[in-house]
């Protein structure tokens, strides 16, 4: 019995090809991939060289869309605004998530606490945006009521061009903080506890253990989480769309929103596609550079 089960598969394993079965298994997913990812990607690239609009079909116009893009101050503004958003959003989120992950790791194994921390992630961006939009309302939002109560000035969180982007960025920190922290927490759990025990025996402080054990060993996970969140952060749209709609005066007209407006308010799908191509190239380069710099493939654990 035992010897039979060891012999038979060895004979059957190597030479066969499962192509026919594989095609069956992969067919639905492959169909979806070709129809909604692969062909649209090619088509999107083609659109960027045409004057395609929403109604008819477009004609080839060479690189005119790209030339227009480089001369378009609103495009550069959108890019600049988006970068501000990403820097604030990712900067604050990463530091806080790392701190929260370490706190959770060192304090408690409670599933309930981790569940609570995750709650904002379960709620749609649109809902999160509206709740905070209401809470930071200038006249009767609770945040401004409290600010006034403690003797500070009211803040026009969404109305002041200088405040709008930080506000939107921090709202999304609230939504993604717990989720990011739990991803990092999972990374922390992979660090062998003996390291901490040994360090503790040598009298190392928590602070020192964080810098000499936690951070170096967490680097590969941190790098991956950073790449994914940066790419995601550049796609900021929902929050802006239901609150400021790009205003006040272009202050929150982020690149995703600008593409949307070009395509569905100006009906200029060709130009919108050119900006989208730019976004694809930029994000791919950023991801590549980040992974390179942080050498995420090499773990200090080895």
């Amino acid at each position: 019995m035992a010897s039979a089960s060891r012999m038979t598969p060895r004979i059957r394993r190597r030479p066969r090809s499962d192509l026919r079965v594989a095609l069956l298994f992969i067919a639905p997913a492959a169909m979806g991939f070709v129809a909604f990812y692969f062909l649209p990607a090619i088509r999107g690239l083609w659109f960027s060289f045409t004057d395609q609009n929403l109604i008819g079909s477009g004609d080839f116009i060479g690189t005119a869309n790209y030339e227009r893009m480089f001369d378009d101050p609103l495009f550069w503004n959108a890019l600049w605004v988006t970068i501000q958003y990403v820097v604030i959003n990712i900067g604050v989120q990463t530091v806080l998530a790392l701190a929260l992950a370490v706190l959770l790791h060192r304090l408690t194994r409670s599933i309930v606490i981790r569940g609570i921390v995750l709650l904002p992630y379960l709620v749609a961006n649109v809902v999160v945006a509206l709740v905070w939009f209401w809470m930071s309302d200038y006249s009767i939002g609770i945040i401004n009521v409290v600010l006034e109560e403690v003797g500070l000035d009211r803040v026009a969180f969404f109305g002041d061009p200088a405040m709008a982007i930080p506000t939107v960025a921090l709202i999304n920190v609230w939504r993604f903080l717990g989720y990011t922290a739990l991803l990092l927490f999972a990374g922390l759990q992979m660090i062998p506890p003996q390291y901490y025990e040994a360090a503790a025996l040598d009298g190392a402080s928590e602070w020192r253990m964080f810098w000499t054990i936690t951070l170096p060993l967490l680097r590969p996970v941190l790098a991956l989480v950073l790449v994914i969140s940066v790419v995601g952060s550049f796609q900021i749209f929902d929050t802006v769309a239901v609150t400021t709609e790009g205003g006040p005066v272009n202050a929150t007209r982020v690149i995703y929103y600008y593409i949307y407006q070009q395509a569905f308010e100006r009906f200029d799908l060709g130009y919108a596609s050119a900006i989208a191509v730019f976004l694809v190239v930029m994000l791919a380069s950023i991801a590549y550079l980040q992974l390179k710099i942080m050498r995420s493939d090499r773990s200090d654990l080895a």
Binding site: F33, F38, A41, Q235, F237, L269, A272, S273
Partner: peptide
């Protein structure tokens, strides 16, 4: 496709 911002394919979609 993981790295592609969805808007790029959603316009043609």
């Amino acid at each position: 496709a993981l790295m592609i911002p969805p808007i790029f394919v959603q316009l043609p979609n």
